[in-house]
Structure formats: C-alpha cells, structure tokens
Design a protein around this nucleic acid. Structure first.
Lengths: 257, 257
DNA sequence: CGATTACTTGAGCTACATCAACCGTGGTGG
DNA sequence: CCACCACGGTTGATGTAGCTCAAGTAATCG
C-alpha cells in the first residue's frame, strides 16, 4: 500500500507528475519537485464501481479526494430525501465541505467506474504549509467552488426549466472542454432523475425539455449521448429564462406550437 | 491610518482582542498574542452608509472583509439582472469567492449602516502561514460556506414558497442566536424584494407568505420586525415542502382555506 | 428471454408569476 | 404645516409553467 505512489498499476494509476489533470487539480502551478512531494502523500485506490460510495454523509472526514477518471455524484440526505449537490468530473476535488465540521456533509457515489486519488487532509495541510503554491491552490479551488455556487443560485432561482437544462449542458460541455474532451459530444453518466433532482425539476420535465431541444435542433439526444448542435442558441436559452418564446420563433424556427 | 488598529474610534472600532465576534470570525481558536498579530493587519473603515457598496463585481480583489456591525447584501449582476447571493451578519466574511480569480465575483452593499473590518489578503495569507490556527480557521470558514451552499440548494430546489421563507427565517434566527441576539425577535434589514430575489420568489409571494404565517400564528410581522411565535411548526414547514397542507390543518389550525 | 428499471409521452391540476390596483409612510417643497 | 409624491408593501384576479398521476416504450441486467 505504501508503494502505491511508486508503481504504475493500470491505466489510471500513474503519478501526479505524469497526470494529464495537473492543471485542474492540486499540482497546478507547482514545480516538478513539489509535485513529486505531493505525489508521495497521494494514494490511488482501486477503481470504484458504479454505485459504490466513496464516502458517506456523517462519516468521519480524513481525506480529500480527486477524481482521476469516471464521474461521481454527491448528494445530501435529509428526512430520507436526497438532494443532488454536484456531479464531479476528472480533476475535481471532493470532500471540501467536510473540512469545517470534520464529518462529511454529503455522500459521494460513483456514477460509472471511477479512479480516485486520496489525499489525507492532515498531510495535505502540512504540505501546504511548506509549499506555498499548494496552499494557494487549495484556497483557489475552494474559492472557485464558492463562486460556482453563486452562479448555480442564479441558474436555479431565475431560470425556467429550459434555461436550467441548457445551462447544465453548457456547464458540462465547458468542463469537458477544459479536460480535453469534446465539448460538443459527450455522455451523460447520470440518470435523468439525477439531473432533475439537481436542477429542481421533475424527471418528466427533464425528459420533455430534452425532447424540445432535440425538436428545435439545438441538441441531438440518443439516450445518454448528447450532441450539442447549436451552442449559441443554447447559450441564449441558458441566459434568458424569462419569456424566451417571444423571440424563439425567429431564432429557433421551432416546429410544432 | 496606520494607527487604526491601536485606537478605539467609536463603539465598533475596538481591536480584535476585545471583539465580541471572536468566536465566529478569524480569531477563533487563536491565542491572545496571535489575535494581536492578526489585529495588526486589520484596518477598520469608517461606517458604511446604507446603500454604499463595499466592493463591486469585477473590481480588483485585495482584501477580505468582516462584518463588525450592521448587515450587508451581496449580489451578482448579469445582463442587468441582479441575483442576491447572501445577506451577511456581524462576524461573517465577505470576498472569499474572489480569491480564485483575483476579482470580485459579486457586489456587496450595506443594507443598513455597517462597520467593516478590512483584511488585506496577501498579509492575511502570510500570517496564516505563520499561525497554524489562522490557517485552519480560514479553511474552516470557506468549508462551512460550501456546506451552507449545499443546504441552500436543498432549500431552493425542494421547497415550496412557504418552506423557503420558513427556512430563511429560521436560518436568520439561528444566526442571530449565535451572535447573542434574540433568535425569536429581530429586524429584517432587507426589502421584501431582496428576500424574493434571494429565494427565487416574486415579491408578492413573499408578502403573501408572510401574511399566511402571521394568519396561522407562526410569526408576528410588523413591517420589518419579525417575531417567531411557533418555531417548531415553522421548522416542520421548512423541512416539509411537499404537500404540507395534508397535515397543516391538524398542526396549524389554519384559519380560512 | 423475461423482469426490472430508465425514459418518454399524455392529461389534468396547482403553485406561483404576472398584471394591476391600492394602502401606508416618510421625505420634500410650496 | 400640509399636500403631494415616490416607494415599499399588501391584496386581488388571472394565466401558465411545470408538477403529478398514469400509461406506454425502450434499455439493461440477471
């Protein structure tokens, strides 16, 4: 186990120094040597199978986790009701909301087979006190998450179902782009019900809205495969919740009523 | 100006060492001497008048701010549309979402006359590298904010208008309690429109919901003055969005339909 | 290959937005 | 000092986006 940072076990078990996600994850801005130091505290676990929890709400917090491949859903449960909090892509960090209380505030499960890097918090914390760039990066990551939450508030409170779904798709697309994947064609690893839960919509509404978008030629939907056909129009939909339709006829050439 | 940390200028300009809000703000967990060090980098500005901005979205980020007295509203603007992000009470920190990008992601204005402590970020950052407890506290504050945002997501996406407003009031109440104020009677410093904007509701709905609560004897509303009369029932309303009414008749003895 | 689970589509209902009118209050100027 | 106005808040009437209930279709898995 102690050697996990030395050996290359399978496709995703390379060291931080070789990782493609450096610029998104903790290594960003660090020197090669510093990354190596970081690498030494990271442990790479065996891949998480779909549906397997990474940590559970209420569980003792010990480590932060970075997604290496695959995707993770995190959610909170209260009175038996789940609330999807986020979908995490490679390079994103989980567990940050647990630092404050020392216990995980949410549950994280794999949406598909996922490889995860584990960073013991106390060791990361100490290393951050040594390596200035790491300290900055930790704060930067948290700050960006706070800013992203503000954007999400806007998406939810001021946008219609169409606006929310459009915003959601564009958000995913740009995150895939950052990771070097196609931003116009990708797979949704979560269920429609997860999306609905996340966006505060009923599953049926999510489904219908996908169909609308497809109908209007904005996207192509084949089950979980999404192709973005008209990004600009989608952006307008995402930005303009209120009364889209009054100019939709011009812009979208919408079929049907 | 350099001496601002030494002299006591008016009621709210005392040093961190004497501040009542120690346990909420950065000094939490620090030794007296460490608080003194912190105190030396804090500058206390002259009180902000109602409506005066503390910082503006897009503006260069240089400092974090702590509310000393009064209250602050922060909001983002996009395409001319405002989205209320938060209401900040004494002891709370503003500007955290700017660390990542180096520019403020939101605008902050005083809702009422407010005293503010300014903490230059680079100095705070350096001090945090020296003082372990400060470092922890900074991370803790950010982490808690992340966790609070998760809770907010739940409030917005899964709760009805009544649920949201009840949750909002209870949230305020508990935050007042933490600060040693009454948690059953307090003043709303913001407009109804701010509340509506924050919760994703129309002003009219906020107004009507206040009236409902009043009618049901849950709270007493006199303009901006709120008295919480039945906290437990309010908590049920806040926790149960979906189909409240089926047991509301029993619980609330609601008058009218 | 059958059974379970995800997704879609339709019909009707409701919570809330929108539009509109009205009230109270505090500030201003004649 | 009062009349007026501007603005925040309340209340009422109406329309509609999206939820719920229900049923059918497609995909997934043992």
């Amino acid at each position: 186990m102690d050697s996990s940072h030395v050996f290359t076990i399978g496709k995703f078990s390379r060291a931080c120094t070789d990782c493609q996600l450096q610029d998104l994850c903790f290594p960003m801005g660090l020197s090669r040597e510093e990354i190596d130091q970081l690498n030494r505290i990271v442990s790479r676990r065996s891949p998480l199978q779909r549906g397997t929890p990474l940590f559970k709400q209420g569980g003792l917090f010990g480590s932060l986790f970075a997604v290496r491949s695959g995707s993770i859903k995190s959610f909170t449960t209260e009175d038996g009701i789940e609330q999807t909090i986020a979908f995490h892509l490679p390079g994103e960090i989980l567990g940050l909301d647990a630092i404050g209380e020392g216990r995980h505030q949410s549950t994280a499960v794999a949406l598909e087979t996922a490889s995860i890097c584990e960073l013991p918090y106390d060791r990361l914390y100490l290393l951050a006190r040594e390596i200035d760039g790491l300290q900055h990066q930790l704060l930067r990551i948290m700050s960006r998450k706070l800013a992203a939450d503000d954007q999400f508030k806007r998406l939810i409170t001021r946008h219609s179902a169409e606006g929310r779904l459009a915003g959601f798709l564009l958000n995913l697309a740009s995150r895939y782009a950052l990771r070097g994947y196609s931003s116009s064609e990708f797979n949704l690893s979560m269920f429609r019900s997860d999306i609905g839960n996340y966006l505060g919509l009923a599953v049926e509404t999510v489904s219908r809205t996908f169909t609308h978008f497809q109908h209007d030629g904005l996207i192509d939907v084949q089950g979980k495969t999404i192709k973005i056909l008209r990004r600009d129009t989608l952006e307008i939909v995402a930005g303009n919740s209120a009364r889209l339709d009054f100019f939709a006829d011009d812009l979208l050439n919408r079929t049907g009523n």
